[in-house]
């Protein structure tokens, strides 16, 4: 065992990069759930975003356009879910599961010609001066653009929910859709917009995987990350700031256990891998004493005539 071989600065920097896909997907799902919709199709939207982003980046040679393509792909798929749950008033849980099934199939069909292709590289931002600051420099300022986009999204969502009128409406719709409707808010429109935003974020997260983290297209490459993003939203008790914390914790546990192994520490991997989920349940229990609970209308179907 040689713990000194773990470099804490590099470890923190990797955790930041490793947590980006779940962070993106989770911040999108947070908005969806805050509007009172439970979309379990995150995995399907992520992998669709992964292949759309990949294909478009390869086609155009530009990772930036690829990321946009990934977001659009995820959003388009999520509109199917919106159609089912908001227009056809289908059950959220079942529709989300169907969306994942559909997305996994769709992505592998779309990706058939892209196995073994290398995407155009996404450049790292070399931020002058800031990047040279000892300690903080490598941890905070040595990443690619998407890491900062993800952070900016978290900040944006936080500010939107807390200060803006749009955030107020979103929360009203999520807490009590009947009251929100009575107040004249367009419940269905708000929710469709939220679902599309969630899809776009999940798509971005997927594209980050296929263009930066891995970077390659392989079938089933999300390997369950979308489900972790769902757990993360709960862990964060539907608060933007805590999503960030949670993403670092979830990403951190995984990166840390790999680092501990590399340093020669014999750890029971499966039991450690369980820990984020057990912690999430504990957080739910602790939170129950707190005011911050799940949006009251979460997963309930809304129809104006009710």
């Amino acid at each position: 065992m040689d713990l000194s071989s773990i470099n804490p600065i590099l470890l923190l920097a990797s955790i930041m990069a490793a947590s980006t896909p779940i962070l993106l997907a989770a911040i999108g799902e947070l908005i969806v759930e805050r509007s009172g919709v439970l979309n379990l199709g995150v995995e399907g939207m992520m992998i669709t975003g992964a292949i759309c982003g990949f294909a478009i980046a390869v086609g155009t040679g530009s990772p930036a356009i690829g990321f946009i393509g990934g977001a659009v792909g995820g959003a388009l798929l999520s509109l199917l879910f919106a159609l089912l749950t908001q227009v056809a008033l289908a059950n959220h849980v079942a529709s989300g599961l169907a969306l994942t099934l559909f997305g996994l199939g769709l992505s592998s069909l779309l990706g058939q010609g892209y196995v073994g292709v290398k995407p155009p590289p996404t450049p790292k931002l070399d931020i002058p001066v800031l990047g040279d600051i000892p300690l903080l420099g490598p941890i905070l300022f040595s990443h690619d653009l998407m890491v900062y986009v993800a952070l900016a999204l978290v900040a944006g969502v936080w500010a939107m929910l807390k200060y803006s009128r749009a955030g107020l409406i979103l929360r009203a719709v999520g807490e009590n859709h009947d009251a929100a409707h009575a107040l004249g808010y367009k419940v269905v429109r708000v929710r469709i917009a939220a679902i599309a935003f969630g899809g776009a974020c999940a798509g971005l997260g997927g594209a980050y995987l296929s263009l930066v983290r891995v970077p390659q297209w392989t079938e089933g490459m999300t390997a369950g990350i979308g489900w972790i993003a769902l757990a993360l939203v709960v862990f964060a008790s539907w608060k933007a700031g805590r999503v960030l914390l949670g993403a670092w914790l979830f990403g951190g546990v995984s990166v840390l256990q790999l680092n501990l192994q590399a340093a020669g520490v014999a750890i029971p991997v499966e039991y450690l891998s369980m820990s984020p989920y057990v912690i999430t349940i504990l957080v739910l229990v602790i939170m129950s004493a707190d005011k911050s609970r799940a949006p009251a209308s979460l997963g309930r179907i809304f129809h104006a005539s009710q």
């Binding site: 159609l83 056809a88 099934l101 997305g103 769709l106």
Partner: peptide, 17 residues
Amino acid sequence: AAAIQMFQGMLLFFLLA
């Protein structure tokens, strides 16, 4: 296999819809 998966997904979509 992916086409079958999509087909099942569609069936569920339509049944729910």
